[in-house]
Design a protein around this nucleic acid. Structure first.
Lengths: 144, 144
DNA sequence: CTCCGTGCAAATCGTTTGCACACAG
DNA sequence: CTGTGTGCAAACGATTTGCACGGAG
């Protein structure tokens, strides 16, 4: 969580109420919201905001290193945590959770990359079933 | 590369010329083709085939474990190599290459997953610049 | 005053779906 | 024969774009 105004200025951009609201909401969001979800939340604070602005701002945040875009199945999700980490994705409810771990950042060095490939970032995604869905699944099979 | 006819039957499906062609082409493809690319290639062998059939068949192959779907930025790419491995993705030309490595499969155990999360598969993607694009980039800056 | 960022609506792109027919089993 | 897989075209969801205006600097 940095001073957005200062950050934006350093990157040659302008500060707006929309950008502040989007960044605030993204930082405060518990999960890893999609652009649409973020849009819904931000609209409570900036009623007239448009979805395109949310996309624009998110792209700016990603390009300037303040956020990370997690793309995979379905709509992309966004994350502000900028230390290297992986994600889990529930195959049932598609929730994304963080996997803070030094292993992730150390990984790059261990991989035998194609000759000449210049690595920039490593992302790790663990697909599976989240605790919540596993619990419900167990209940369901108990009920049946 | 398995006997597709037998595999499909074991999974309760039917064998068709389209499915055979798609699987053949996917196995023979050097890179990691998108559905669209695959469609173009398969059309040379089965001129009347439809893109929907390519999507259907790919989904079947993925569901039955004969192929892997690599989704991320842009269109999804497909891969037949079924031993655990990671991928590199060039940020410039978006080429996807394989990273065969035991580290990837061993990774799951080392990560501190959220409590209760049941892992199913681990995917690793290294973003960066591929050798080809790096070479061209170097040339370009030399020229300038 | 100058442009960058915005809002809106339409366009685009990848993928899925509904339907009638064909052909594998 | 029976029902699954096919081809087509239309629908769909996520994201991008073009354009004119408004507000930050």
């Amino acid at each position: 969580m940095v001073d957005l105004r200062e950050h934006v200025h350093r990157c040659g951009g302008r500060m707006t109420a929309q950008r502040e609201a989007i960044y605030d909401v993204l930082c405060a969001a518990s999960g890893h919201p999609t652009a649409e979800e973020l849009f819904m939340l931000v609209r409570e604070r900036v009623p007239g905001i448009s979805l395109a602005t949310v996309y624009n701002t998110l792209e700016m945040l990603v390009n300037t290193g303040l956020a990370v875009k997690i793309s995979g199945e379905g709509p992309a999700r966004y994350d502000t945590m900028c230390t290297p980490h992986g994600h889990t994705r529930c195959m049932h409810c598609s929730t994304v959770e963080d996997v803070p771990d030094a292993v992730v950042s150390a990984l790059g060095a261990d991989l035998s990359l194609p000759a000449g490939f210049i690595p920039w970032s490593v992302s790790v995604e663990v697909k599976g079933i989240c605790a919540e869905c596993a619990r419900q699944g167990a209940e369901a099979s108990t009920d049946a």
